[in-house]
C-alpha cells in the first residue's frame, strides 16, 4: 500500500509499486489534466510538482514516492486564476493545448525558483515540447506571470 497526497487530498493505493505516477493520476484518480505524451520523460506533457519540484510523472514509480506531496494542474488554483494561468489566458498561449498543463506546471516551478527569470532562464529550464510551437507566447506569458505575481 502506497500513500500519496495529491492536491491536498490523501490517497492510499493498492497498486503495483512500479506503476508510473502519471497513470496513477490519470487512471486511478481520474486527474486527466496531466497528459501522456512520450512515456520516457522527453516531452514534459506529464509534468507535475513532486514535493514542490517540477517532475515528469511518467518516469516516477509510485512505490518510490510513498508519503509524497503532489500538485497537478487541477490543484494549481481553485478557479484557474493562478498568476501563470492568468498570464496564459492574457497571451492566449495554447493552440491544440495538449502540452499546456505540463508547460504551466514547469513555468510555476521556474517562477518559484526565479521570480524574475530571463529569456535564457526560460529557454534552459522549460524544455517541454510544444508541437504547435507556442514557445514565443510561453516566454511572454512567463514574463507577464512574473509581473502579476508581484501584484
Amino acid at each position: 500500500m502506497t500513500a500519496v497526497t495529491v492536491n491536498g487530498q490523501r490517497h492510499e493505493l493498492d497498486i503495483e509499486a512500479e506503476t508510473p505516477l502519471l497513470w496513477v493520476l490519470r487512471d486511478e484518480l481520474g486527474l486527466t489534466g496531466t497528459k501522456y505524451g512520450c512515456g520516457i520523460a522527453q516531452c514534459g506533457a506529464c509534468t507535475v510538482h513532486l514535493n514542490g519540484a517540477a517532475t515528469r510523472s511518467c518516469q516516477v514509480q509510485i512505490g518510490d514516492i510513498d508519503g509524497a506531496e503532489i500538485l497537478t494542474i487541477e490543484g494549481l488554483s481553485a478557479d484557474g486564476t493562478h498568476p501563470v494561468q492568468r498570464a496564459w489566458i492574457e497571451h492566449d498561449v495554447p493552440q491544440c493545448g495538449y502540452c499546456q498543463s505540463g508547460q504551466i506546471m514547469a513555468a510555476v516551478a521556474l517562477l518559484k525558483e526565479k521570480p524574475d527569470p530571463s529569456d535564457s532562464d526560460i529557454d534552459t529550464t522549460i524544455t517541454n515540447i510544444c508541437r504547435c510551437g507556442t514557445y514565443p507566447r510561453i516566454r511572454m506569458a512567463i514574463h507577464r506571470a512574473a509581473e502579476l505575481a508581484k501584484g
Binding site: L31, T32, K35, G80, V93, S101
Partner: peptide, 18 residues
C-alpha cells in the same frame, strides 16, 4: 481571445485520451 483558451489552462479541456 480564443474560446478554448481557459479550459486549456486548467486541465479541463477534453481530449479524446481523457
Amino acid at each position: 481571445a480564443r474560446l478554448d483558451t481557459r479550459p486549456k489552462t486548467n486541465g479541463q479541456a477534453p481530449f479524446g485520451i481523457d
